[in-house]
């Protein structure tokens, strides 16, 4: 995609080698622009989660740079990334209520419960859990826990939302439902998302651009623009154009995989 807009974040020649010698990521370049929904699609071991963690600053690249062109920098020279992160597991604090969990990012910034209340309730309303503010995580289903996790990620109104296989552990019915929720929220809030998945179907359904990756060493092998304007819904999931894109992504994925690679 040729786009003259300034990227929110820009990866340049990122490589990551673990201490045991495994090359997790080799020479990855990626520009992420405002409003994009990018899926990192690939088999396990392709470095897609590593790339996400490097963007988030949870891991450091061995070589290469991550630029945040429009971010402000704190006195220590660290960029204020304004990130929301959703892990594969809901990663909620079991001892805190739903409200307390969503409050956490604001609380860590020193915002009091009273001052944060409106933002927290708004975030919970967006994921349809306002009624469950005083519930504890153990009282919720897997899908609801994941919604709390999403509410926590969006309560800070981040510039970019990073999601690391967030729905991989959920059943298919719940997953489809959450896929639609993500699309709706993106429509409403104009999110920029980087979404890690190993599901071809999920990535085509959600994305404006798919980055196909392969393993050993982890690398980018193809980029596919999903040029489907307008709101997507269940109709899109059964459409001809959806099937074509799925085949294209699937072909790109398999072309990159050697005969000895396993999914």
């Amino acid at each position: 995609m040729t786009d003259s807009r300034k990227p929110i974040v820009s990866l340049k020649a990122i490589s990551k080698t673990f201490s045991n010698g495994t090359v997790a990521l080799s020479d990855m370049a990626l520009d992420i622009r405002q409003g994009e929904f990018i899926s990192l699609l690939g088999p396990s071991g392709c470095g897609k989660s590593t790339a996400l963690r490097i963007i988030a600053g949870l891991a450091t690249a061995s070589t290469g740079t991550v630029d945040w062109p429009s971010a402000t920098y704190d006195p220590d020279g660290r960029p204020d990334r304004e990130i929301g992160f959703v892990f594969q597991e809901p990663t909620l604090m079991p001892w805190a209520t739903v409200f307390g969990n969503v409050w956490l990012p604001l609380r860590l910034k020193g915002i009091s419960k009273a001052a944060a209340r409106a933002d927290i309730m708004h975030a919970l309303e967006l994921v349809g859990l306002a009624k469950f503010a005083e519930s504890y995580p153990r009282e919720l289903s897997g899908g609801m826990k994941m919604r709390v996790s999403i509410a926590r990620a969006l309560v800070t109104q981040p510039k970019i939302l990073l999601m690391d296989e967030p729905f991989a552990a959920l059943d298919e019915i719940t997953r489809f439902k959450l896929n639609n929720d993500i699309l709706r929220l993106r429509e409403q809030l104009g999110w920029t998302v980087v979404f890690v998945t190993h599901s071809v179907f999920e990535s085509v359904y959600l994305s404006s651009r798919i980055v196909v990756m392969a393993a050993r060493p982890g690398r980018v092998v193809a980029e596919i623009d999903i040029d489907v304007p307008g709101p997507r819904g269940e109709d899109f999931r059964t459409s001809e154009v959806y099937a074509q894109y799925c085949r294209k992504a699937s072909d790109a994925l398999h072309a990159a995989m050697g005969a000895n690679d396993h999914l």
Binding site: L58, I83, F85, F87, E89, M93, L108, T156
Partner: peptide, 25 residues
Amino acid sequence: HNLLDLFKLYRASPGQTLWLLKLPS
């Protein structure tokens, strides 16, 4: 570990991490 990452992501101070995460956990 994911919760530790989360606290790191939001730049929690060591005191916050201790009081809000490690002790309750």
